[in-house]
């Protein structure tokens, strides 16, 4: 039997962490783009469009990410493709992320006081101009802390993709456990690596939030 040193274990885990990071980035950026579209649909004056966006958000926030991953995996397969795990993983995570970011950002847009809408309307701006020049610049400021905060959920969400066979940190953890029979050490290390990825994001979000609150109070 081969002896695994702690360093062997750690090195294998760290190598797999690259994929966790890459998938997180792709999901976050992709989810942000889709989420922006959904958010604009959600605040649209057109009832049908807004309802569709709401249904999308309800659906993705009201069902487990794991089920969404399975549906992406097996659903894509039905289209006759052999589906690589990364594709299903990326697709499901992007759609899932989009639903949360859309809702977070909608909250930010709606937090802008009604007076701002009215003032800009009274200056003769159309809805698009109001958004572009008055509402969004203000919403952006308050959107940053919760958006950074949600990125933590995305990183943690990538762990589920191991279940459909994408080899990232969690999957590597399982593989290394099976080879070393040291679940305590291995999963402990996996947890610490996730912590090292997520904690700085959590802290940043908290610090930004506090700064924003202070800035608000000084007004």
């Amino acid at each position: 039997m081969i002896e695994f040193t702690l360093w062997d274990i750690l090195r294998n885990l760290l190598l797999a962490t690259r994929w966790t990071i890459l998938l997180s980035l792709v999901s976050f950026v992709g989810g942000g783009i889709v989420g922006l579209v959904v958010m604009f649909m959600r605040i649209s004056a057109n009832k049908a469009v807004a309802t569709a966006a709401r249904a999308y958000i309800e659906l993705f926030q009201g069902t487990p990410l794991l089920m969404q991953l399975f549906l992406a995996f097996f659903g894509l397969a039905l289209l006759g493709m052999t589906v690589p795990a990364w594709l299903a993983a990326g697709l499901a995570l992007i759609l899932w992320t989009a639903s949360f970011l859309a809702e977070i950002w909608r909250g930010c847009v709606e937090a802008i006081a009604k007076g701002q809408w009215e003032a800009s309307a009274s200056l003769g701006m159309g809805r698009i101009q109001q958004l572009r020049y008055v509402i969004l610049p203000q919403a952006l400021r308050i959107a940053i802390p919760p958006t950074v905060g949600f990125s933590v959920q995305v990183v943690k969400g990538t762990a589920l993709t191991s279940i459909i066979g994408f080899v990232e940190l969690t999957k590597a953890g399982t593989a290394v456990t099976n080879a070393t029979f040291q679940p305590f050490t291995v999963y402990g290390l996996v947890a610490l690596i996730y912590f090292a990825l997520c904690w700085p994001l959590s802290r940043t979000s908290q610090v930004l939030e506090r700064k924003l609150n202070v800035a608000h109070h000084n007004h």
Partner: peptide, 23 residues
């Protein structure tokens, strides 16, 4: 609180189910 909120639920689950028996 920080440890739990910054690690995936699945890893917590694995740690409890697979890891704790070694203790």
């Amino acid at each position: 609180v920080e440890l739990i909120r910054n690690t995936p639920f699945m890893i917590q689950l694995f740690f409890i189910f697979f890891g704790l028996p070694s203790l």
